[in-house]
């Protein structure tokens, strides 16, 4: 089948898509955006998290056909041109990135939290990131990065 959708603001068409193909596979293998990662393929790790019409989803659990006519935003689409989003900057500054494989999914999830909740509490941060696994960092600096980005955003909004 053919799937038409928008990815990071650009219209995309994928041809010869099998019914069973996941959105993640189409993004990584057909659209050429391997930023979203495949670490479990069954909704357990959050590495593949992308926005689908503004809601974070596990792209490995979304059939490609479900994206027909909809808007997808991936880690590659968080930056504003060359300018990284504050959550991306905070991850580097806080040392929240080690191997970086969990990072894209965490960034999308954290980005969504900060957009929705202006000054998230610690329990809110933990809850939002509950579905994202990281084997390297021990999470400490990831939480710090989300706190920092949220504080900066609140500051800028004042």
């Amino acid at each position: 089948m053919r799937v038409n959708f928008t990815v990071n603001g650009v219209e995309q068409t994928a041809d010869d898509v099998w019914e069973g193909e996941s959105l993640l596979y189409v993004l990584r293998e057909r659209v050429g955006l391997p930023g979203s990662k495949n670490a479990c393929e069954q909704g357990e790790c959050g590495s593949c998290t992308v926005y689908l019409d503004g809601t974070p989803v596990c792209a490995c659990l979304v059939a490609a056909g479900q994206a027909e006519g909809r808007e997808v935003r991936t880690v590659e689409g968080l930056a504003d041109g060359e300018r990284l989003d504050p959550i991306q900057e905070a991850f580097v500054e806080c040392g929240a990135v080690q191997c970086g494989f969990c990072t894209p999914g965490l960034l999308v999830q954290a980005h969504d939290l900060i957009e929705r909740v202006p000054e998230p509490s610690d329990p809110e941060i933990r809850e939002a990131l509950a579905g994202n696994l990281c084997r390297c960092t021990g999470y400490e600096k990831i939480l710090d990065a989300v706190r920092l980005a949220a504080a900066r955003k609140a500051e800028a909004g004042r």
């Binding site: 990584r28 050429g32 955006l33 391997p34 930023g35 979203s36 990662k37 991936t74 880690v75 590659e76 968080l78 930056a79 990284l84 991306q88 900057e89 991850f91 580097v92 500054e93 040392g95 990135v97 970086g100 494989f101 990072t103 894209p104 960034l107």
Partner: peptide, 24 residues
């Protein structure tokens, strides 16, 4: 000194290529 991870920017931008992600 606590220098930022040098490939950190590539990783947060989704630009870092892991094995199997090269286009051939």
């Amino acid at each position: 000194a606590p220098l930022d991870r040098v490939e950190g920017w590539d990783k947060v931008a989704g630009r870092a290529r892991y094995s199997g992600e090269q286009r051939v």
